[in-house]
């Protein structure tokens, strides 16, 4: 980038600086990766053997039993099914709704353009809070159903704003010439704007999908009693939290790893939950990088 090869001798301070950069980034990478790698390693280690500790980057006693145990749990399968379902459905509906809204508020000639924008921007700063929202969903009959996962959060002002910014960058002349050809607004949205918005659509779809995949609080709050609508993350939470809540008690501090769910099973469940996203995100990198950049800086 800015380091064009000028023949200027490098000051000593630059050499020290290079060492600092190296040390910082090395520790950053280790601190980021190690805990995740260790979890994967533990998930492949024998459960009883793991209690002895000291397993770092390779399993000591290899075993697939943890995965067999996890995959034999009925609730994990139910959770996986619901999680995949809500992720797919919500990504599609929410992407469509946000895109349409962004399209409407980015039409320069639209009479209520600024009013509608303001209407949504306000929702970013003011909301009813947990209890009123809980009661609303209850009154609407959304609690205890699958629909609570995709209907309430369908439109989000933030996602809409990112898309609006992108759409505003598309030359108006495209829309005008289409209108001269007799195209209505829906045709313009479908055939002219949307094909040009593929990158930003991909970004927003990714945001929504990740959000959906990782949600657990809504499952706990609205569908605690409905085990058939449980989600993967919530099941993982139940598995892990029994251990975490215990760590406060004194006797458990001494016992260390000997807790309710063996650490290796928890590791296997963790890996199962994070696997799809961890495998996917490196390929989608360029989308979320451009998306964030549009939303955050260029405006």
């Amino acid at each position: 980038m800015h380091d064009k090869e000028y023949k200027v001798s490098k000051p000593i301070s630059d050499k020290i600086f290079a060492v600092v950069v190296f040390l910082f980034l090395t520790s950053f990478v280790i601190i980021t990766l190690y805990p995740v790698l260790n979890t994967i390693v533990l998930s492949f280690n024998d459960g009883i053997d793991a209690v002895r500790g000291n397993i770092y980057l390779w399993p000591r006693k290899f075993s697939l039993k943890n995965y067999k145990t996890v995959l034999a749990m009925q609730n994990i399968w139910t959770g996986a099914k619901i999680t995949v379902g809500r992720t797919v459905l919500a990504t599609l509906t929410s992407l469509f709704a946000n895109a349409l809204l962004a399209f409407v508020v980015s039409r320069k000639r639209f009479l209520f353009k600024s009013g509608l924008s303001l209407f949504w921007v306000i929702t970013m700063y003011v909301n009813g809070g947990m209890i009123p929202i809980f009661l609303l969903y209850k009154n609407l009959g959304l609690t205890g159903t699958f629909h609570v996962y995709w209907i309430p959060g369908m439109i989000s002002a933030f996602n809409m704003l990112v898309m609006r910014t992108y759409m505003e960058g598309i030359p108006e002349s495209l829309e005008e010439s289409a209108q001269l050809d007799g195209a209505g607004y829906f045709t313009i949205f479908k055939d002219i704007i949307s094909p040009l918005c593929k990158p930003v659509y991909a970004t927003i779809a990714l945001f929504i999908a990740v959000w959906q995949w990782n949600s657990w609080f809504d499952a706990m709050l609205y569908n605690r009693m409905k085990t058939k609508y449980t989600t993967l993350q919530y099941e993982l939470m139940k598995l892990l939290s029994s251990v975490m809540q215990q760590s406060g008690s004194a006797e458990n501090a001494k016992n260390g790893a000997a807790t309710i769910t063996p650490v290796t099973i928890r590791a296997a469940a963790t890996v199962v939950t994070m696997l799809p996203i961890v495998c996917l995100y490196p390929f989608l990198q360029r989308y979320f990088v451009t998306g964030l950049t549009i939303g955050g800086v260029k405006e």
């Binding site: 980021t32 990766l33 995740v36 990740v210 995949w213 990782n214 949600s215 657990w216 993350q233 993982l236 939470m237 892990l240 939950t273 994070m274 996203i277 961890v278 995100y281």
Partner: peptide, 8 residues
Amino acid sequence: LPHFLSWI
């Protein structure tokens, strides 16, 4: 990577 993991 960590951004894509849930808080759980």
